[in-house]
Amino acid sequence: MPNLKSAERRMRKSEKRRMRNRHYKSMMKTFIKKVKNAGTKEEAELMLKKVYSILDKLVAKGIIHKNRAASYKSKLAQFVNNFPITQPQQA
């Protein structure tokens, strides 16, 4: 336990920030999974736009680094562009 009043306040603030950051990171991971588990390429592209928006917001808030966000964007775009054809073409 902290001895100083300022250290006590600092501890409360850091715990609030940790919980907030945890929420945002969890949300980010959930949306990334939604892109990867999309049924169709069109669905994946729609989710990709949402993920881009979320990643940009997290960078602006300082929760993740801009290079990490760029890496996620690049990998997800590559995944969507090479989206596997799950249903066979019928002639």
Rank of each mutant, 00 (worst) to 15 (best):
E8V: 01
P84W: 13
Q89I: 04
N67Q: 12
L55Y: 09
K29L: 13
V51R: 08
K61S: 07
K75A: 10
Q89V: 06
I64D: 13
A70I: 02
K57G: 12
A77P: 01
R22S: 14
G39A: 07
K29I: 09
K16F: 13
Y24G: 00
R10L: 11
E8N: 07
K49V: 06
S71V: 03
L46G: 11
K25Y: 07
E15I: 10
K29S: 07
L46I: 02
K73D: 05
R18N: 11
T40C: 02
K34G: 00
L76V: 00
L48S: 01
E8S: 05
R9I: 08
E8Q: 13
K5T: 10
R68C: 00
V51L: 06
P84G: 12
K66R: 15
R20I: 05
Q78V: 01
K5F: 04
K25S: 09
A69E: 07
Q78D: 10
S53N: 11
Y52Q: 08
H23Y: 15
T86L: 14
E42V: 13
I85K: 14
E42M: 05
K61W: 07
L55C: 06
P2Y: 13
S74M: 05
L55N: 09
A7N: 02
N3W: 06
M11L: 14
T40H: 03
A69Y: 08
S26Q: 08
S71R: 12
V80C: 03
K25R: 15
F83I: 00
L76E: 04
P84A: 15
K34V: 07
K13Q: 14
L55T: 10
A60H: 12
N67C: 04
A7I: 01
S74A: 12
T30W: 09
K33G: 05
M19D: 12
E45N: 08
K16I: 06
K33T: 06
P88G: 04
S71K: 11
S74T: 12
S53T: 14
V59M: 07
R17L: 13
H23W: 13
K5R: 09
N81Y: 04
A91W: 10
P88R: 15
R20P: 00
P84S: 15
S53P: 01
M47G: 00
L46P: 00
S26Y: 08
K66F: 09
V51F: 04
F31T: 03
Q78R: 09
K33W: 08
N81K: 10
P84E: 15
